[in-house]
Design a protein around this nucleic acid. Sequence first.
DNA 1: TCCAGATGTAATCGGTGATTACTTCTAACC
DNA 2: GGTTAGAAGTAATCACCGATTACATCTGGA
Lengths: 207, 207
Amino acid sequence: MSKTYHHGDLPKALIAAASAIVEEAGVEALSVRAVAKRVGVSPGAPFRHFASRDALLAAVAGQAMERLATAVEAGQLKTDADPLEQIRMIGTAYLRWVAEHPTQFAIISQRNLVPLEGTARKQNDAIRDRMMALLTMARSHGHLRHDADPAAVLLSCRALVYGLSRMLIDGHFPEWSPEGDPLDWMQRSLDHFIRDLRPGPGQEAGE
Amino acid sequence: MSKTYHHGDLPKALIAAASAIVEEAGVEALSVRAVAKRVGVSPGAPFRHFASRDALLAAVAGQAMERLATAVEAGQLKTDADPLEQIRMIGTAYLRWVAEHPTQFAIISQRNLVPLEGTARKQNDAIRDRMMALLTMARSHGHLRHDADPAAVLLSCRALVYGLSRMLIDGHFPEWSPEGDPLDWMQRSLDHFIRDLRPGPGQEAGE
DNA sequence: TCCAGATGTAATCGGTGATTACTTCTAACC
DNA sequence: GGTTAGAAGTAATCACCGATTACATCTGGA
């Protein structure tokens, strides 16, 4: 018989199947039995490798998290560019990935559901540290208002992008931007925000 | 016997019990049976008043939503104040309520889980319209950069406050602001954001 | 008074996460 | 190369859940 008793790499197959189910039918549709059935294994088999449904979900989330981090890292290429422009690129890559993989983002966003750890944790920290470095650089180059607090600005950047992302997957855009593509609005919001960080040419305020 | 066969007002009691359970043990701990047991009624009884678990949850959410909207409305008193300051007050009231009622906020944030309707819907629209009016007013008074797009700024305001709120309940603050009270950081982020909307005194950029 | 409809009960179904005892296979060791 | 320890998968089972149905009970208006 071609099918061996032991599955080649059940954990990997389980994560893949679970990812597929989540992608197709949402997080709430994920059940251990469904995953087992999809892989063609008994309902209890997954518990040999994942202690609980949440553990399986965490594995799926970990994978998704690394993908998001990788996409964001890929988004920031030109290292010699203006610091705030680099931050804008990071945010843009983030927003784009979320728009392309809404259900995956829905899983990874809740830390209480899925703790941040491993490779994803490191990538996340690296991105945050890079943003902080970019902001302090921007400040020292005079690209930020002179009285700006980089830590507060960092939090605002993160909150804005995260907020836009969650608004998208939580279905808030019909309320807050009735017309047009949500992704366009998200981009516009981000651009506006970054521009307002600069002390720049809004000076002749009176029109 | 003091206990009548018919419950006085079961729907209300069910919502109250459900709210309590959610407040105590989180959304995922909410089950129809648990609510029924808490009220002291048979497991199937709630279905006479709520077609499904989600319908019960929606009722709880609707109540929570009205409370949030009311809190926000209560936060904006001084009508003659500077428009951006008024927006800041709205955001502040929002953040404060979220920090005080995190689990309730967790329910009401997902529109796919709980559609926005009824009184809450009207309140929500009213707040959004008020914010839009404040922003256009701010722009015409020269309190916004002259090339600002009120619609984009509105979205940014909303996204920032919503993002901060979700970061709080999703447990992101340990990553993004290691020290200090999250609510303080949220407030600081909002203040910074509002201030950066002004064309104001950041002009002498070089320090 | 009495009956119709509203309200709560009891029993039940299918699905789920999780645990257990058991079977089957793999791989390392002498 | 045969034996065996343990990893991996199976099957049966438990308790819980949402939901449905048939039935019992109460309430208020004609």
